[in-house]
């Protein structure tokens, strides 16, 4: 299954990347190479191998339900491109 230009366009859209036609061409050929490289994994026989959901051999890591100090609001808002001192401000989003 080779990646096509249309697949890359869709992936870019999902990632909210606006690509020019040239960029789309370059990225398509580069992505094809990356996917081909990873495709090598397909040659490994995996019958009878239990799927692995996590690389660490660890489970049940919990914390207690205790409050911990968070960030002061000024700090929380400080990285935002736009805020009004109370809220983050973003371009109008309508029709949730």
């Amino acid at each position: 299954m080779a990646l096509e230009r249309e697949d890359v366009r869709r992936i870019a859209e999902l990632a909210r990347l606006e690509l020019s036609s040239d960029e789309l061409a370059t990225l398509t050929s580069e992505l094809i190479q990356i996917v081909d490289y990873v495709q090598q994994l397909r040659s490994i026989k995996t019958e009878g191998v239990v799927p692995l959901a996590h690389a660490l051999d660890l489970a049940n890591v919990f914390r207690d339900d205790c409050l911990a100090p968070g960030l002061p609001r000024e700090a929380a808002l400080s990285n935002a491109p736009k805020h009004d001192g109370a809220y983050f401000l973003v371009p109008a989003v309508l029709g949730e």
Binding site: R63, D65, C66, L67, A68, P69, G70, L71, R73, A76, L77, A86, Y87, F88
Partner: peptide, 26 residues
């Protein structure tokens, strides 16, 4: 719960906006 699912911020309803956050939930 008193705190959020993955961090120690409060889940209390009705607080001033953006006063119950931390690097994890941000």
């Amino acid at each position: 719960t008193a705190s959020k699912l993955f961090c120690g911020c409060s889940t209390q309803f009705g607080a001033e906006p953006n006063t119950q956050t931390c690097p994890v939930c941000l």
